[in-house]
Design a protein around this nucleic acid. Sequence first.
DNA 1: ATGAAAGCGCTAACAT
DNA 2: ATGTTAGCGCTTTCAT
Lengths: 354, 354
Amino acid sequence: MARRRQAVTIKHVAADAGVSLQTVSRVINNEPSVSSDMQRRVQASIDKLGYVPSIAAQRMSGSRSYLILAINDRDRTIADWRARLGTDWVDQMLLGGMLKCAEHGYRMIFELVDTHSDHVERELSAAIAALQPDGIILTPPHSDNPQIVQFLSGQNIPFVRIGSIQNGAGISISMDDEGSARTATRHLLELGHRRIGFIAGASEYELSGWRVDGWRQAMDAAGAVCDGLLEYGNFSYASGEAAARRLLMAPERPSAIIASNDQMALATLEVARELGLNVPVGLSIISFDNTPIVRFTQPALTAVDQPIAATASKAVELIIAAQKGDPAPTSLTTISAPLIERGSVAKPSGRFGG
Amino acid sequence: MARRRQAVTIKHVAADAGVSLQTVSRVINNEPSVSSDMQRRVQASIDKLGYVPSIAAQRMSGSRSYLILAINDRDRTIADWRARLGTDWVDQMLLGGMLKCAEHGYRMIFELVDTHSDHVERELSAAIAALQPDGIILTPPHSDNPQIVQFLSGQNIPFVRIGSIQNGAGISISMDDEGSARTATRHLLELGHRRIGFIAGASEYELSGWRVDGWRQAMDAAGAVCDGLLEYGNFSYASGEAAARRLLMAPERPSAIIASNDQMALATLEVARELGLNVPVGLSIISFDNTPIVRFTQPALTAVDQPIAATASKAVELIIAAQKGDPAPTSLTTISAPLIERGSVAKPSGRFGG
DNA sequence: ATGAAAGCGCTAACAT
DNA sequence: ATGTTAGCGCTTTCAT
């Protein structure tokens, strides 16, 4: 391949408009100190020549790179992609993040990073050195990884921690895990359920704990007992199956179960079927995530939606604001997670009901 | 935000190793003219300092950008993301493309471009000017857009056209639409079906035509008539519904239907249900795409898988090869699309069967 | 096989 | 409000 050069550079524009490079640069960057005459004249040349600045050159001269790095967990993401179970976390991130970036002339670059490895730092600093991003978006479980958070806080790059709570550096955005777990639990309580089981997610994710907290709060507030109703999974189908079996084969089984993600909810549905329990008549189920798959089960699952697109969009906004020098939000940003009602929830029936 | 500078530059490495910048550059780029002593010494400094080259600087000095642009249709992609129907085209592209990029130190950047607009060229040249990618991957319907193909062929950037057949500039990769349609049709013929309906996709996609061709070839070879068995859709659920209704309400209805994508197959399934036709006993269905959703229908659908990950991976390989100056493949690259058998196909029964 | 000098396209800092 | 100068980190010449 022959050496490629920029087709139209700032020099061409400057020559065409008969002004200095700096003036063109000022117009590109919307700086205030340009007379409107000048601004019009230069803009005309830009449009005429179809000039677009090279982000490489912009970054080189110490300015922005217009690149925002979105980092996901490598193993889980690849596993999801290969499993082809319809998990659309990445798509929703792109929907929210990419489009918001585009609005501001930024680009989102997706990266996969291992959480576990001892060289997280090296992976991250390599990506930063290579790309020089203007901001970084962390998703769970990275958002809660102290090693990553500490490393980034020393890098002088704004970063947002999705699904996290302000407990360290960076800007946190929560998807209201505690609140939505409370809402889901209350929803069941209001229908008359008293024995509501809960399947927790992987402990590596802080949000797993908050969901448990929300459930417990709602149960306590209603005077319902929690004993024997909490089981631990790790977000996998298999772990959900085991947890559901423990809950449903106990002497006093729950009349409803909330699972901390869709895969574990699916497993619960299957275990119920095995045990001859009709859903929702014999057992109500609510799941977390609301990935596409839960609309296609029989019955479709009532689920707590994860507003990933809205969250990613907000994350981009916060980074761009921080870039501009605006102060980071002082309070925790929370994007609420709505409960989507479908067919897997009903009033309790039989002896364990209300 | 304070002005960010590269933490470790080529200068630091050069100083540490006690050599010139140029020598370090040669080591980074694996150039042959470096003595192995030198190479080791410099590499040691690189490792010690954790040096990673800035792609902005590399690109600025007329070398590679290590960026590959993957371009998808804006409207359709966003519609898919919003619909949350589990379509994982983008994910599979990332799975194949991103990972292959990473193997070679490249990055994949996703972009959305309008096919229809009259300013496709402007959108594209802006992306090229801003990013200076080393290669571009086009997906349908962009791959067949003559405006785009012609524009890119003048840009001196290698580009791959996915789902396209060599009819112009660029490197084409086909997913064997004709062959897989033939295979699917033969599969039904071998089970004894004679009246096999076909629902074509949007005419904007050349692959729609090839799929029809494959079906027709198999039918002709078996001496089966095609008359009244071909209906046109546009890949939407609604269009599939209308097409299926036309096919199934005709006086001599087909005993099997092949739909050119999953959404139209889903619609066919629903129309069959409405008409009281049991699938697969009363009607066999085969779909194209094999998105996650088709595993969750009742029955699960037999489908022609689209090997998007493998194709994207191959596309990246071809671009990197072209970048290095290797000649483009002389023959059309084809990635075969396997037929995944599930429960929606059975032997024909009743008067229209074999 | 190695080094020195020039320049890529742009912006920060300092003029005026 | 506009122009000039220097330099970002790297690779391309062109030397030696």
